[in-house]
């Protein structure tokens, strides 16, 4: 049988999906074991058991200095920044993307500008943001928003322009104004697309968040990682990296669910 026709069964699919995870964990455990056999005080690859212990401590015991449970307070600080930045970006992108996609005048006037602005490397303007917004929350949120807004606008404008011409003409023959077409024809069809674009933009959004927190912050997941780096606390770093990965995965899952809920009309069965 050809390879392109071989398919896993149900159990096989689950097994294959788990395999790379198991392999990586096994590889890590073996490497950690090997290093600690040479030097029991090795800090580069802490034992899996120690990682679990550190995770439990971070998630349950209050910090001696601040009295807060670090993992949760850092998570709250980071998620608030991420949510604010992404929400601002999505709001701007929704309005600008719909307008550019629907209105030829705006497309002609702003299309090239947005394309040019989206080429500005966001991290390169971070110093400007710190100067303008100070070292507080403003600069971090602005970095996330500035980093992903141009991409979201371009994607949404392109999707809006892909709405079949027939639908726009049809709406006009029913007497709809440009605003009514934007609100009732384009917007409902573009909301799931926007969420899809936000899912793609979350990767860069996390990057900008952690970069901003690394440079100037007093709480947050990125701040903690770059703080404990000085003490070579690999156990904390690894726990935080795994936690961020899990958060990102869950966020993606939630957005996917939301997008599907908003586009139930696209599914054939009633």
């Amino acid at each position: 049988m050809r390879w392109i026709n071989r398919r896993p069964g149900r159990a096989g699919a689950v097994g294959l999906a788990l395999l790379p995870f198991v392999l990586v964990i096994a590889l890590y455990a073996a490497a950690s074991e090997a290093r600690r056999a040479v030097n029991p005080a090795d800090r580069l690859l802490p034992a899996p058991a120690q990682l679990i212990e550190t995770a439990t401590r971070l998630a349950s015991e209050p910090d001696r200095r601040s009295g807060r449970i670090l993992l949760w307070s850092d998570t709250a600080a980071s998620l608030q920044r991420l949510a604010a930045g992404v929400a601002i970006a999505a709001g701007i992108a929704l309005v600008a993307g719909l307008a550019i996609g629907l209105l030829p005048l705006l497309q002609a006037g702003l299309g090239g500008f947005v394309a040019a602005v989206s080429m500005v490397p966001p991290l390169a303007v971070l110093p400007i943001l710190f100067i303008v917004f100070g070292l507080g929350e403003g600069a971090k949120i602005a970095l996330i928003a500035i980093g992903i807004t141009p991409f979201l606008i371009r994607d949404l404008a392109a999707r809006t322009a892909e709405i079949p011409r027939e639908q726009l003409v049809k709406a006009q023959t029913l007497g709809a104004s440009s605003l009514a077409i934007a609100l009732h024809v384009a917007l409902p069809q573009m909301l799931p697309r926007l969420i899809g674009a936000v899912r793609l933009a979350l990767g860069p959004a996390w990057l900008f968040l952690i970069a901003a927190e690394a440079i100037a912050s007093d709480a947050g997941l990125g701040y903690r990682i770059f703080l404990v780096r000085r003490f070579f606390a690999m156990d904390v770093i690894l726990v935080y990296v795994l936690w961020i990965t899990a958060l990102a995965f869950l966020l993606d899952l939630a957005l996917r669910w939301l997008a599907r809920r908003l586009s139930r009309w696209a599914e054939a069965a009633p």
Partner: peptide, 24 residues
């Protein structure tokens, strides 16, 4: 020809509502 994101009934209501005013 019909709006995919509106129900069958919604598509017929749209014939009245879209042109009702600027906001539709």
């Amino acid at each position: 020809s019909v709006f995919p994101h509106m129900t069958v009934r919604g598509n017929l209501i749209a014939a009245d509502s879209l042109g009702a005013n600027r906001l539709g």
